[in-house]
């Protein structure tokens, strides 16, 4: 595979990986207050995402993809709210271990990386079209 097509493919895989990351971030933010539904039950656990390199067998190009979606084993925060259905005997409710600030920072970073990959695709497309322009009659 020629290097320019390979560059397109790699940047495309980067876009896909970063958008999956954005999906995970939005899941975490949407579930920032998802408690359990039975007394004392565990609430939503924050999800994490890890990227890794993988060889694309058809083209022999090393692309990037999502290696693992895991969960954050961190401690839950608690709140005193006896009226909540998830409250235990003492009236304490466990809340998800999602920190909105961390998620926002993660979202920003995913956005930046997405933009960078997009920029690479545009740049590569320009290189290809300036090669094709050599064929234009002058």
């Amino acid at each position: 595979m020629d290097p320019l097509s390979a560059a397109m493919k790699i940047a495309g895989s980067g876009l896909e990986a970063q958008s999956t990351r954005l999906r995970i971030v939005s899941e975490n933010i949407a579930n920032a207050r998802s408690t359990g539904d039975t007394p004392g039950a565990d609430p939503y656990r924050r999800k994490t995402i890890t990227f890794g390199q993988q060889m694309d067998r058809t083209s022999g190009v090393e692309t990037v993809n999502v290696k693992k979606v895991g969960v954050d084993e961190g401690d839950f925060s608690t709140e005193f709210d006896p009226s909540n259905p998830a409250a235990d005997q003492k009236g304490v409710v466990k809340l998800p271990n999602v920190n909105i600030l961390v998620e926002m920072a993660d979202m920003r970073e995913a956005n930046r990386s997405y933009d960078a990959n997009l920029q690479t695709i545009k740049q590569t497309r320009d290189l290809i079209s300036s090669t094709i322009d050599l064929l234009k009659s002058q």
Binding site: L4, A11, G14, F51, Q53
Partner: peptide, 24 residues
């Protein structure tokens, strides 16, 4: 030179795509 430049572009694309890959 064009070949060298395209290979370099591929390397840069791979670096950018792996900007968040651990141990890259």
């Amino acid at each position: 030179q064009a070949e060298w430049l395209t290979v370099r572009q591929q390397v840069v694309a791979s670096n950018i795509a792996n900007a968040n890959t651990p141990k890259f």
